[in-house]
Amino acid sequence: MAAGGDHGSPDSYRSPLASRYASPEMCFVFSDRYKFRTWRQLWLWLAEAEQTLGLPITDEQIQEMKSNLENIDFKMAAEEEKRLRHDVMAHVHTFGHCCPKAAGIIHLGATSCYVGDNTDLIILRNALDLLLPKLARVISRLADFAKERASLPTLGFTHFQPAQLTTVGKRCCLWIQDLCMDLQNLKRVRDDLRFRGVKGTTGTQASFLQLFEGDDHKVEQLDKMVTEKAGFKRAFIITGQTYTRKVDIEVLSVLASLGASVHKICTDIRLLANLKEMEEPFEKQQIGSSAMPYKRNPMRSERCCSLARHLMTLVMDPLQTASVQWFERTLDDSANRRICLAEAFLTADTILNTLQNISEGLVVYPKVIERRIRQELPFMATENIIMAMVKAGGSRQDCHEKIRVLSQQAASVVKQEGGDNDLIERIQVDAYFSPIHSQLDHLLDPSSFTGRASQQVQRFLEEEVYPLLKPYESVMKVKAELCL
């Protein structure tokens, strides 16, 4: 049975990233139509530049190519590739079939990587351009969430054990800070992308030097003109047959890092959902379990974690691919890159769409948070109580021993009897502590235990987050809708 299948058929496997999760716009960027249309555009740009620099290419040939950029006979191309065992030459023939007058000058002087690699770089750039505003929107939604809850005390956790208090907004800023680093890295790697350009079979530009009869300047002009037509500021000066596969490492490393950030955020949300302090959106008709109707599973956060793990592992592909590119190139890269580049971007696209949807509907339960604080705060307040007693004339050592005994009794009630923490009640009825009984409410005010959390939130948002989001103001209103 021949390899390949009808990918629109229910009898043929289709990647869930495309069929179930990723956005239509990201799927289109990695589609065959987008790819092969870009090949034709690159052939047109090459012909236009070659004509401008004096090669015998007519206006009629150029116009014929322009008129057929979208006229792609995919069936013919597939048949040609089956016959020739070469995808680029299959599309040269297919393009030439609908451009008979231009057929002889299509791909003039070029090698397969002229269309293959340059198209990949265009796709990487455009895919990054799709991700950047999506990530900015996630940051914006979380920034709104953090600002609104900047002063809401909550129990902090280290080692997932109760620690000092923080605020809900401050905790959210930990998430935002990681995503801001990801946004900066995505922008950097996007701006650092260079075009492969017009380089020939081993990167020496020998074929173009021959076409222009040894004119170095025209060869350099050709490279520059096509690079500018493709919208790049610069091209690699040095290439082998391909652009260095280190570029793929750079791009997928940034995406993998984004995956790590999203995994951490969504894990926190899942843990908070278990504590009943916070939940992701839950639709009115949504079913959490087929057997347990009360369940409210954090399905979206779980999906993000599941896909983020996949995204983090994909960076190993370009690392290994770059390491086995012998001399000017081997074909070890080809099949692998067809999979890992598309999957990385479709996965990143999915987790950003999902995280935006989550961040637009996060639900906080202040009463649950308050109750958990009441359970733990008495123990945390013991040092403040000791200091207040010393100020009232008591002995630190005597007070410490009193607190120690009462704390152990209260802990026994919590752990052995399943009761509430009654340390404060014990202190309130103990005559030894009568000098500070009137101060206990103040000493137990949760806001006095959150330090500068709310001020940190305000400063972080104003100095770091809002300036970073400013270039994306025009796209901030787009909502994230999930079908599944």
Rank of each mutant, 00 (worst) to 15 (best):
R338N: 00
C172H: 05
N357W: 04
L272Q: 06
L121I: 11
K233Q: 07
I269L: 06
A291F: 04
L209P: 00
L443T: 03
A388L: 07
R303D: 00
R20K: 07
A49V: 07
H217S: 14
R194V: 06
K276G: 08
H107W: 01
L46C: 07
E481A: 15
S9D: 12
K415C: 07
V324M: 09
S31D: 09
T239R: 01
A77P: 09
V168T: 07
T94G: 10
E220I: 11
E279A: 08
L461K: 04
F212D: 03
M26C: 08
S407L: 02
R303W: 00
L152M: 11
E70V: 09
V138L: 13
T204V: 12
G116L: 07
R245P: 01
M387D: 02
Q439A: 15
I373P: 02
L307E: 03
S257Y: 06
Y21E: 00
L355A: 07
Q408N: 14
S306K: 02
T202A: 13
A127K: 00
V368I: 03
E81P: 04
A335Y: 04
E463T: 08
E481Y: 09
W45E: 08
R234G: 11
R270G: 02
L108D: 02
S257W: 06
Q205E: 02
I106K: 00
L484C: 11
E64W: 07
V363S: 03
L42E: 04
T201S: 05
G200P: 03
D223Q: 11
K284A: 09
L130S: 12
R426A: 10
A308L: 02
A136S: 14
Q375W: 04
E50C: 08
L193Y: 07
H400P: 02
G231S: 09
V363W: 05
D441L: 11
N71Q: 06
E473N: 15
A3K: 14
T154L: 08
M292K: 03
L255S: 06
C98G: 09
M26A: 05
A392P: 06
C172I: 10
L209N: 15
T166Y: 01
L252W: 03
D248S: 00
A431F: 06
E425G: 10
P318S: 07
D120P: 03
R83T: 11
L155V: 02
N353K: 12
P298G: 02
S407G: 10
E376A: 05
F282Y: 14
E425C: 08
G109C: 03
L352C: 07
R296H: 08
I62D: 02
A335W: 01
L121K: 06
T321C: 09
F236K: 04
P378M: 03
R374P: 02
K276L: 07
R374T: 06
Q285G: 14
R404P: 03
C305L: 02
Q439W: 05
E280G: 03
S207I: 07
L55H: 08
R338M: 03
F74E: 13
H86S: 00
I269A: 03
H217I: 11
E360L: 06
M225P: 02
G393N: 07
N357S: 13
G156E: 02
Q458R: 13
S151D: 09
F345I: 09
A110G: 14
L155T: 01
A260E: 05
R40F: 00
R396S: 03
K82Y: 08
S438F: 08
L128Y: 15
A163V: 02
A136G: 14
T58R: 12
F36H: 15
H442L: 11
F145M: 06
R149Y: 14
R14S: 15
S301E: 06
G240Q: 05
A235L: 13
K276V: 05
K147D: 10
R14K: 15
P435E: 08
M387K: 04
Q63K: 10
A256E: 02
E473R: 15
P435L: 08
R40V: 04
Y472D: 09
Q356C: 15
G214K: 09
E279Q: 09
Q439T: 11
H93Y: 14
L319D: 02
Q161A: 04
C180M: 13
K470H: 13
E80Y: 08
K391R: 13
A230E: 04
K246E: 02
M181F: 14
T354E: 03
R309G: 03
R426K: 11
Y365I: 10
L44Q: 15
T244L: 00
K218Q: 10
A291D: 02
W175P: 00
C305Y: 00
A77L: 13
L346A: 11
Q325E: 03
D192T: 13
L352A: 10
Q325V: 14
M389S: 07
G214Y: 11
A335L: 03
V413N: 12
G451S: 03
S257Q: 08
F145S: 10
I386M: 01
L484Q: 15
Q356E: 10
V475A: 15
H7C: 10
G418F: 02
T154I: 10
E213W: 10
L443C: 06
L17W: 14
N336A: 12
T204H: 06
G4I: 15
V88A: 08
A103N: 15
R396W: 01
T330D: 02
S407D: 00
W326I: 09
A2W: 08
V189E: 13
G54Y: 01
W326D: 00
L252Q: 08
E481H: 11
Q428P: 03
I176L: 13
Q41G: 12
M26V: 07
S67D: 09
T111S: 12
I106T: 08
V315A: 06
E462M: 15
M292P: 03
